[in-house]
Design a protein around this nucleic acid. Structure first.
Lengths: 192, 192
DNA sequence: GTCTATAGCTGGATAGAC
DNA sequence: GTCTATCCAGCTATAGAC
């Protein structure tokens, strides 16, 4: 009988993934090395190769883990009574955002990562398109383009986060208000 | 009498910066090392330290060189008869975009770079705010927020570029049309 | 200004003991 | 599954000859 591992007894495998996530967020992907992973996770560096074969695979698995979690969260959001508001929250709320930017940078020169992100993006987008199309049709927004709305929310959210990291926030409140006034128009006041 | 250097006779210093730009675009910032720079620029790697002291300074100088060029281009754009259209073109056209994203990634774990980008962003934003405010006031757009418009254009532009790198383009045409129809509304048909 | 040589470090990855 | 030991490559940075 295999013992079930809980949060206080994580498997070595997931401990390594957690360590990678932590290092990536704090110091960027370039700081993620097998030796650093070993130290942070409290295990031997060689185990990275035992579990993942090489560093690229570790990155791919870490990305996939985060993407799957986000996808589930987004599925739940889009099933809410106010799917547009919920999607806007999900896009903004995602603690995944910072990690994602790091992966995008990684993808610039690692083909395996790029392919993974590309496929994941298409998967997210398809789900969003479907839900936003229905949401717009259900309310007074049949005249608006679902694709444009999704891109607007995604672009602005990511750009604002990025600027916040540089402590630049000119115009942030205004553009958020612009998007949210649109959401109010088609989906009504945000329910609390 | 010092000989003037032309494009075919660049100084070693600028040859190193050119090499850095090239490597960064093709393989990402992590691939930029003194040895690679030496090989690509056809000079000795030790010259990197002679000219820049260390790698951080090289990155900062490369960023500054690009930012200054973009700033000049943007100044010219904003002085055109259709400043909003010209700004939109400048934001989209910038061959700097890909490089900028690489610098943003670098900035995550190099303080010197982060400070440089932050200051540069504020400088660009101030210039844009000024010009867009006037442009909106001059035409029928006095009711719109200049800050929101700038952020919308900047966010969307960067996000689309990023997605293009992953060969994802769902909704791109629609969101571009949304922005351009707004520009037509306040500034009239784009002059050719 | 440009080069050689080199110190000192960190990294990816593997072989093999336990 | 986990560890030690190790090879080899690549990096930053400096000292010093030319």
């Amino acid at each position: 009988m295999k013992p079930a591992r809980d949060a206080e007894n994580p498997t070595t495998r997931s401990a390594l993934l957690d360590a990678a996530e932590c290092i990536m967020l704090e110091e960027g992907y370039a700081a993620v090395s097998s030796r650093r992973l070993g130290t942070t996770a409290g295990v031997n560096p060689a185990l990275v190769y035992y579990y993942f074969g090489n560093m690229d695979n570790l990155f791919v698995e870490l990305f996939r883990r985060g993407a799957d979690r986000s996808y589930e969260r987004q599925l739940r959001a889009l099933a809410s009574p106010q799917p547009l508001w919920a999607l806007w929250d999900a896009i903004n709320d995602q603690s995944q955002t910072a990690l994602t930017m790091e992966f995008v940078a990684l993808a610039n020169h690692r083909k395996a990562i790029r392919a993974e992100i590309a496929e994941s993006s298409r998967r997210f987008r398809a789900l969003q398109l479907d839900a936003v199309s229905s949401a717009l049709a259900d309310h007074g927004g049949a005249g608006y383009s679902p694709g444009a709305l999704i891109l607007l929310m995604s672009s602005v959210s990511r750009f604002l986060r990025m600027e916040e990291a540089f402590e630049v926030d000119t115009g942030h409140a205004e553009v958020v208000e612009l998007i949210e006034s649109f959401l109010r128009e088609v989906e009504g006041e945000r329910a609390r």
